[in-house]
């Protein structure tokens, strides 16, 4: 346990406490958007705005998770791999188990923290009524809904080029946010886009949150969908790792001398 906590402390400092970019993009930006769309650019009647302030909270929680997974986590893990930290740990008796356990735990905690911060802003700025039970439920849904996105972040971290990762993260996160209705209502989009949007993990998590915040029963379809995405992403991750090992190309250990590396 001590080794795990050591690793968690190490990762917590470099990923969160000493990382202003994380604070800005994953915390401040979704909160900024939330205030902008619910307080500054108001549309509709007062009662509609109350409902919107409540549901939009869920959208921004999911948006925060997307940015954290596809930008912060993916870039951190890619860099760790490239400078040889992962290889250094792999050569120790403990291997990389504490490293991966720490990052997954930390991201879970940070996602919960983002959700908590957005809920607090919703309560303070928009006077959204939230019980402790509802708040806890939101945290649980947010953390579970983040699993497919976190796995996608880990998958992306295996790309070797920093530039390619950056392009891919942008090309995934922003279209994903749009087609899954995180920024504006899905009904504004063409039917075929809506059909695609409704099967994305971001839509499914957001839909779960919206239903939960409205006091409705949680749709089994959404939960099964998230589980399906999580399993699918994990299978993809294991398949990629196995393929890289099989083709003997995962030799990057902070070295640029041996060229056949595609991780």
């Amino acid at each position: 346990m001590k080794k795990f906590l050591n690793q968690l402390k190490f990762d917590g400092k470099r990923l969160f406490l000493r990382n202003p970019q994380y604070l800005f993009f994953v915390l401040a930006m979704p909160i900024g958007f939330y205030i902008l769309f619910t307080k500054v650019m108001t549309m509709g009647s007062a009662s509609e705005m109350v409902t919107f302030a409540r549901s939009y909270m869920g959208s921004m929680i999911v948006y925060s998770i997307v940015i954290g997974a596809l930008f912060s986590l993916a870039a951190l893990m890619q860099h760790d791999r490239q400078v040889g930290l992962v290889q250094t740990l792999r050569l120790t008796p403990n291997g990389t188990k504490y490293y991966y356990a720490s990052l997954l735990t930390l991201m879970g905690l940070l996602n919960a923290l983002s959700a908590l911060a957005i809920m607090l802003v919703a309560v303070i700025v928009n006077h959204v009524a939230l019980s402790v039970g509802t708040g806890l439920g939101v945290l649980i849904i947010a953390v579970l809904g983040s699993i497919p996105l976190m796995t996608l972040g880990v998958l992306y971290s295996r790309i070797q080029s920093v530039e390619l990762l950056n392009v891919l993260s942008n090309l995934t996160s922003f279209p994903l946010a749009i087609i899954s209705g995180l920024w504006w209502p899905l009904s504004l989009l063409p039917n075929w886009v809506q059909a695609i949007g409704k099967v994305t993990p971001t839509y499914l998590t957001n839909h779960l949150l919206t239903r939960f915040l409205a006091g409705n029963a949680l749709p089994t379809r959404d939960m099964m969908g998230i589980a399906g995405w999580a399993v699918g992403m994990l299978i993809l991750l294991f398949a990629l790792t196995a393929w890289q090992n099989m083709t003997k190309v995962v030799i990057h250990r902070g070295s640029t001398q041996e060229t056949p590396s595609v991780q």
């Binding site: 001590k2 050591n6 040889g84 050569l91 403990n94 902070g254």
Partner: peptide
Amino acid sequence: TGSMLQGNLKLPRVRVSELISLIGAQY
């Protein structure tokens, strides 16, 4: 076994003593 890799462990936002301590904790 100890291994000094060809590349350097150039990790942003990490202090020298923290990295050495982390690696030491694995043994």
